[in-house]
Design a binder for these strands. Structure first.
Lengths: 110, 110
DNA sequence: CGTATATTTTGCTATATTACCAAATAAGAA
DNA sequence: TTCTTATTTGGTAATATAGCAAAATATACG
């Protein structure tokens, strides 16, 4: 592959990679509703502070999320809501996968 | 997080993870145009046959791609073109990231 | 300043991913 | 069946990632 093309795909993959974790997907969906701070997310997720903080840093570095300090707490904000359309497509894939499994099963029963 | 919710996000993340690699993104975009076999993709990508084949298996296992044998060769097919809308959004994120870097630079120059 | 609160960073270990090579398999042709 | 082409699988080394706990940082306030 041409070097330039390679770089483009690497840049894209880096962003997608930032989304490719259950906790980070959850965070992104939460941030769709409103901004949250680490503590609130920790409570919802049930992981360590440091773990959630790291996930937020990953999302921030990818450019999907921004942060803003308000007094003592830092609020995280979803910069690119178009990401959520994508999750609709992912859901579609899951649905198709599930349907296909059902088909295989019904075929076995015949 | 509730166990059920956890499972849902894991399932979604698994699909996104399948996309989160430059070579696999490239393959998905190529398959948007038409079906390809491993050999053709190897030529475009410039990696080992086994490497590309493994990437195709990853895409197939996630349900994004299907395969069909025609004579001696196996052709790969993009099952869910909605994925491509998502890449548009990723591109948007890249654009914003680039713009922000430019802003920071111009700010430094003042 | 010193203390409390909120969050991030670091150090560590365990696990996962990827690439390449070589060997194995699958399907069709001779 | 044996050859040939197309593709996958297994093994391995290098690299990346996740998660927890402890230490460090940053801001607010008395």
């Amino acid at each position: 592959m041409i070097k330039q093309t390679q770089s483009l795909y690497e840049a894209r993959a880096a962003i997608i990679k930032a989304l490719a974790h259950p906790t980070r997907l959850f965070i992104v969906e939460m941030l769709q509703k409103r901004d949250y701070n680490v503590g609130e997310l920790v409570e919802m997720i049930g992981a360590d502070f440091s773990t959630v903080s790291k996930h937020l840093t990953t999302l921030k570095n990818s450019g999907l999320v921004s942060d803003e300090r308000k007094g003592t707490t830092i609020y995280y904000h979803l910069k690119t809501p178009c990401i959520l359309n994508f999750i609709g497509c992912v859901e579609e894939v899951l649905q198709i996968n599930a349907d296909e499994k059902l088909n295989v099963l019904s075929y076995c029963r015949k």
